[in-house]
Computed example of a mutant assay.
Amino acid sequence: MTTANGTAPSALCRADADGRITFELTEAAGHPDARVLLRRAAAKGSPAPDEHALPLEPAGDGRFRAVLEAEPALAEGRWDVLLVREPGAEPERLRSGPRDLRALLDGHLREWAAPVAVRVPYATQDGQLAVRAWLRPAHAETGHIDVDTRATTVTGRLHGAEFADDGLVRVRLRGARGRDVTVTPTVDADRRGFAFTVDHGELAGTEAPDAPGYWDVYVLPSAGAAPVRAGRLLDDVAHRKHSFVHPSVRAGAATVWPYYTVDNDLSFDVGPAR
């Protein structure tokens, strides 16, 4: 269904620092029981997608408003934002209007308690409105990444956890070939800020790899603690893989490239020299 002017319905949204998101439709929904519906693709083994319905209420000037409160937290993933015009109607994707994300810009400067729940509204490649959500027991937020010819140095900060004296950083090769490179971080006095350096030669080995290998970065607040994935989540960028690009460098017969994954997690791509 389209609106009266022949276009798909659209919504603007505003994100607050506490995780609250307000959606406003630019045209009337038309039914008192209209809803905004957030839908996440069905998890593996689940018969139905996750859904979260929000009532639409008049907001003046012919607009309607729906509010996603900070709690309960959304499960981690990508949530489509849809309009259900009336009970039983087929949900329609909402086009993205303006998104006010200013409150998210300095999220990395705040202290986040466990569990760490993050939400960032964004526009898909075809202009539809969606929300990227992360929900993790703890999180290691990366900051500055300095790549030189021999090593990469990363600064960061733990949220939802703090370092013990035996904390470490583990860089793990993904897949069946999995092996680890373990690094002892430098930890700030508050037990949350940290920095670590990864030697490119340790990732590349002494021989050229015959296929790319992907190494994922984890922080272990203590030697026996559950690994905490390192990445950059605490700002207004839903997808940073192609916008935060770091240089690649030669390491013997290999190339080492630190990069952010599609989930904004920090990894290293190590492959044949190119």
Rank of each mutant, 00 (worst) to 15 (best):
W112K: 09
G175K: 02
P212L: 06
P58D: 10
T26S: 15
A140W: 04
L82Y: 08
V118D: 08
F194A: 05
V81K: 04
E24S: 06
F194W: 08
Y260D: 11
H239G: 07
D165G: 13
R274P: 06
H52Q: 12
A34Q: 09
D148R: 01
G231F: 03
A11G: 03
L38D: 04
E141P: 09
T3N: 11
A204M: 08
T155Y: 07
H31T: 01
A230S: 14
A161L: 03
P272F: 00
A138H: 01
T124P: 14
R35I: 09
G143T: 02
R85W: 01
D180F: 02
A4F: 09
A66F: 07
L74A: 10
D236A: 15
P55A: 14
A211H: 13
A41S: 14
L83K: 03
T153P: 05
M1F: 04
A208F: 00
A113G: 13
P98I: 07
R14N: 00
R136W: 05
T152E: 09
A176G: 10
V81C: 04
G62L: 08
D263R: 04
L25K: 03
V169C: 07
V183W: 02
W134G: 11
H139L: 13
K241M: 15
R39F: 12
V36K: 04
G19D: 01
P91M: 07
R95A: 14
T153Y: 01
R85K: 10
R93Q: 13
L266V: 09
V67A: 13
P247I: 12
V262N: 05
I145R: 05
C13M: 08
A8M: 13
V169L: 14
R240Q: 12
S243D: 12
V262Y: 12
Q125K: 02
R191C: 11
A225M: 05
F196Y: 11
L83N: 04
R65C: 06
V67P: 04
H246C: 10
P115I: 06
G160C: 12
V245Q: 11
L129Y: 07
L101F: 01
G62V: 08
E162A: 14
A89D: 15
V120E: 11
R63Q: 11
A133I: 02
T186E: 15
R35F: 01
S222L: 03
G97E: 10
H139P: 01
P137D: 14
L104F: 00
R172Q: 13
L68F: 04
A59N: 04
T206G: 15
